[in-house]
């Protein structure tokens, strides 16, 4: 299991490529990846897209991605972005 801690308060397009790359690598090496959103206040669409695409890919490969410490506010954004929590 691998935990990715996200430190940015506003986690968005600026971090999208890095986030995508590291998530891709971790999904190769681990069966379970946990994304810890403890300090995050906002995400944008690019992040939501990456999580959803990664989730699909993980399920296909019998792996799991878990989200941790998602604030109420963030949860709302994720729901609008097509994630279900």
């Amino acid at each position: 299991m691998k935990i990715i801690k996200i430190k940015e308060e506003t986690f968005g397009i600026k971090h999208a490529r890095d986030f995508y790359n590291s998530l891709k690598d971790e999904l190769i090496d681990n069966d379970e990846v946990v994304l810890d959103f403890a300090g995050v206040k906002r995400i944008d669409l690019s992040i939501a897209q990456i999580i959803i695409a990664a989730g699909r890919s993980a399920r296909k490969n019998k792996k799991t991605i878990k989200l941790k410490s998602v604030s109420e506010n963030l949860k709302y954004q994720m729901i609008i972005g097509g994630l279900k929590l």
Partner: peptide, 21 residues
């Protein structure tokens, strides 16, 4: 609220800086 995701490619081939939804 329907989120239309049909343009989202697979995770491996997606461009993280591109808007799909």
């Amino acid at each position: 609220n329907r989120v239309i995701k049909k343009k989202l490619p697979s995770f491996e081939s997606m461009d993280p800086e591109c808007c799909y939804f």
